[in-house]
Design a protein around this nucleic acid. Structure first.
Lengths: 239, 239
DNA sequence: CCCCTGGCCTGTACGACGTACGGACCGTGG
DNA sequence: CCACGGTCCGTACGTCGTACAGGCCAGGGG
């Protein structure tokens, strides 16, 4: 059938778009998403305020494209490891690294999510691995999504952590105060003997860790537990 | 020691604050966080634009308080179930329900996270359960956080899903088009035979599900796998 | 050859946002 | 009675996303 090539947007136009997105990503990496305004972006590109709109429909679309640029970094070079567990771990780790390098991409999700190419490539890789397990489609989907969920959740919390440490670092020596009497309500609850466990732990923390914040418990343990559970489930199904 | 009660802010002041926060939550529930502007909030309260600032330092603090209001809904009535696994599941489920009722609370995280009372109460409950496992503190923390991560990740993805369905529903019959030719780049990749698995699955989807979107694989399976992994780990440690 | 057309680019302008600030009001203690 | 501290109000500033109305220029048809 004569396939009309779906309105291909001419290579140079695509290049300009990519350039705009790359500049936006650079700004976001360096100064956070909030620093990415259309005016700032236009300045960065040496162009008038409204010019980027020639290549990008709206700021929402721009953010969507920026997220897809991050998704490109989640792709693992083929061929993937043969063992499904090793492969899923590798993908999860790569995904974590991408989110950690561009924490802003976890921030606001777009109002109107569209299926972008790199996100789809990433999904394609993951599905490919999961299908090797030979589970029914329903369960396969659940495996894929549960791992995704864990990774996203971990990265979201890690970003919050990072932000907190940054703000503590910026405050200098008064940093601890922020933890010690955080809020009148909290202070009252602590005095009243509510929250006994937290009170005990908080006391220990202040002495042992910089800023009173213990090191992160890490990405691996939870991922391993999840994979253990999946593996056991696969073993049961395979009997 | 003469404890000065840390500047208690007088009951009526606290009431006003709570009223403001409640109104903001109401707006966010009904129309999304973006609808919560200080002007709109003031209107809602029948008060001048700047008046809420008498009781709330900034919009960031307001958002923080709104999130804490959601955290209050995550609290489980005492006494908690005796079995640790049942209790953790109950907390996770309750947390999921709270996020689902107020999806906006997963949106932007505050620049300067403070420890608020309800969040702390929620953490206190969770820690209490995890400590029953008798693991070393490090591992206990990992257990707690990994479950948290999974829940947050799941809810984040569920929110995206919900948003997508809403936007598809709003578009009427053309909804499917949005999935069928999502983007020139994607169309090209599909034609070129990249993404074979997705192509096959997408074909199947369109026929079987409303809007071509399959039902969610659910919260339970992933949570169970994670808990299975944790339980096995506990069993090994307890030998 | 000219001229016209269609795509890129520009500048100005509008409405909404968060919030700084200075003044008005008002109940309470000296 | 007055003065004062806390509450409330209105105006105003700077920034944001973006609608819109032109300007520029290359390339193709008369």
């Amino acid at each position: 059938m004569g396939v009309t090539p779906t309105e291909q947007p001419s290579a140079q136009r695509a290049d300009k778009r990519a350039e705009i997105v790359a500049a936006a990503v650079r700004i976001a990496d360096a100064e956070g998403v909030d620093a990415v305004s259309m005016r700032r972006l236009a300045d960065e590109l040496g162009v008038a305020t409204m010019t980027p709109y020639t290549h990008v429909a709206s700021k929402d679309e721009l953010l969507d494209l920026m997220r897809d640029a991050v998704a490109a970094e989640m792709l693992l070079p083929e061929p993937l490891p043969e063992d499904w567990r090793t492969a899923l771990r590798a993908i999860a780790e790569r995904t974590r690294a991408a989110y950690e390098a561009h924490p802003w991409s976890l921030d606001a999700t777009p109002r109107r999510p569209r299926a972008r190419i790199n996100r789809l490539r990433h999904v394609e890789q993951s599905i490919g691995i999961v299908l090797r397990l030979g589970l029914d489609p329903e369960t396969s989907r659940a495996v894929l999504l549960s791992i995704d969920d864990y990774v996203i959740g971990y990265c979201t919390r890690a970003r919050g952590r990072q932000r907190m440490l940054a703000s503590l670092g910026a405050e200098g020596k008064d940093a601890l105060r922020h933890l010690r009497d955080p809020d009148p309500e909290v202070a009252a609850a602590l005095d009243a003997g509510e929250l006994p466990i937290i009170k005990k732990i908080a006391g220990r923390r202040d002495r042992h860790h910089p800023f009173g914040v213990p090191p992160d418990s890490g990405f691996e343990p939870g991922l391993d537990w999840l994979l253990d559970g999946i593996e056991a489930s696969v073993a049961r199904a395979g009997r």
